[in-house]
Amino acid sequence: MKPFDFVQPRSARDAVAQWGPDAAYLGGGTNLVDLMKTGALQPARVIDVTRLPGLDRIEVAADGAVRIGALVRNADLARDADFAVRAPMVAEALLAGASGQLRNAATLGGNLMQHTRCPYFMEPDAACNRRAPGTGCDAIGGAWDNAAILGHAPSCIATNPSDLCVPLAALDAVVEVEGPDGARDIALEELHRLPGDAPERETTLAPGELIVALRLPAEAAAFAGHARYLKVRERTSYAFALVSAAAAMRLEGGRIAEARLALGAVAAKPWRARTAEKMLAGQPPGPDLFARAAEAALAGAAPAEGNGWKIDLARRTAARALAAAAAGTPERMPALPASPFSLSEDLSHA
């Protein structure tokens, strides 16, 4: 690991003031420290923001909107009863991610800013336009078939690995940042960029901008009764998604009044499926409708690199997540959060 200076600012303003082009903000360290070990990232200065005051709170406003400080740990957000009752699919997505140890360390802000798990990004000797602009993309023609199927470009076929961001995009979450030019809000859906011809710009944050909080609008809680996150992976637990879907709906008089659908691990950003949402609105829920909506959600999909299987898998995952959401949010978190197996009967066999 390359040597670095280490600072612990005591205010967000101070943190931003200490930032420079070779600096990195450190939250729980579960992604940054790993990438510093591989050499994929080599900051000259690490700014530990975990001591910033007041950013570890979960606040519910009188109108039901929720504001979550950027330093709230994944485990604490998922297990906050007031939060989980308002946004159960966010809690389910959090508990479907990583391991107990990592969820105890990982922060909300760090989760939003985590990098792709494309192995060619993580390996400093590989060509990667995202990590080292202009070097090319070894993932194209490489051995990684969990690449994007939506929104990719000849420059980069990476996916965003966050589970958390998928339901957040579906629920119109808003990110609060502070930066050299002051504070501003960014829609979560606009935070991550598609690669285009500048994959090295992973987010729309300006240099030095720091995420300080995230807000869920009051309307998000209206979906709490019918909301599921479904994650398909190579093993039942502790693996990144091959494909995931966050599905939620408001049912009125036997019809879907309003639906939300977002897909994960299919693009460089959480993929909101607005066309599918419009198809669902006003219709009675059912398998044929969900299949058509899923078809629409993947209408623009194209294989990036021998991964055409992800398109079928994403369709089926979206349809199944919609069916699970229509069936209703379970009273209790499933033993295997977000797993397709948790949708079946009890699987205990010890």
Binding site: R79, S99, Y238, A335, D346, L347, S348, H349
Partner: peptide
């Protein structure tokens, strides 16, 4: 995990909680 209080007595929850 036991201090977190979420595994309870259920082997499936214990396996999930120990998957790291």
């Amino acid at each position: 995990l036991i201090a977190e209080g979420t595994a309870g007595d259920d082997p499936e929850r214990i396996r999930e909680g120990m998957s790291g």
